[in-house]
């Protein structure tokens, strides 16, 4: 088993890959391959952003970044599965997990695509540019996350799964679309809060800490970074 096989197919032969998920073909293999490969890609990016601070931070971020994405997915998956089931979805739990992992893999591979850019800035900025490096990475993470979410919205849209859904009434279809959109908002919200809980990923100047114990949330954190950048 090549652990990168599913990611390769996701990039080169997406329609066939999605069709296989829809037909429940080799789902366990896809889950294993997507989970392991996305873990590796996220860990590589985590290693790069953590290197801004120290070796300890690099190792810590290489574990925490995959945890951020994959745990968010595992935390939010039951909500989507149960709500979809309530509104007539025929997709199984494994199918849901494979679709979500495919989206996570898209994000992971895009982050790996940005890795050389991040690495370039890592080598050319100093500790004083912490806020700039932080905001640059927030922008990269937001952009890649947006692509992942758009992919998920495309492949999980109701009406694309089985022929039985073609006969679904308009009201149920609307409800299912609303569920998916609301879930994507929830996914973003849980992800940003888990990111805030697991921080630091970059490590602000000073001693290495595994976790920060001060309160707050993701939004207040970004606002503070913007203020610091504006104030020089």
């Amino acid at each position: 088993m090549n652990i990168f096989e599913s990611t390769q197919r996701l990039l080169s032969d997406r329609p066939a890959f999605i069709a296989e998920i829809r037909d429940r073909k080799q789902l366990n293999q896809k889950i294993a391959s997507l989970l392991l490969s996305s873990f590796v890609f996220f860990a590589i990016y985590g290693l790069i952003i953590g290197s801004f601070h120290s070796v300890q931070q690099a190792i810590s971020s290489a574990i925490k970044l995959p945890a951020l994405y994959l745990l968010t997915l595992m935390i939010c998956m039951p909500t989507l599965y149960i709500f979809n089931g309530l509104f007539g979805s025929k997709r199984g739990l494994s199918q849901h997990f494979t679709y979500l992992l495919s989206a996570a893999s898209i994000i992971a591979i895009l982050l790996c695509g940005f890795a050389p850019v991040t690495f370039f800035f890592l080598t050319s900025v100093t500790e004083a540019d912490y806020s700039f490096f932080l905001l640059l990475n927030v922008a990269i993470l937001a952009l890649t996350g947006l692509f992942g979410v758009l992919f998920l919205y495309q492949v999980m849209q109701p009406g694309t799964e089985t022929s039985a859904e073609d006969t679904m009434d308009e009201k149920t279809l609307k409800a299912r679309k609303l569920i998916l959109r609301s879930w994507l908002v929830l996914y973003g919200f849980v992800g940003s809060q888990l990111g805030w809980t697991l921080r630091p990923f970059f490590g602000s100047p000073g001693e290495f800490v595994m976790f920060r114990s001060d309160g707050g949330n993701f939004i207040t954190g970004v606002m503070m970074a913007l203020e610091r950048l504006g104030g020089g």
Partner: peptide, 24 residues
């Protein structure tokens, strides 16, 4: 070996919330 190491790392990742709860 690579697969087993990654599975061990994934098990560690899934157990992370437990440790986090304790630290918090």
């Amino acid at each position: 070996i690579v697969t087993e190491l990654l599975v061990i790392a994934l098990a560690g990742m899934v157990s992370l919330p437990l440790g986090l709860l304790l630290v918090r």
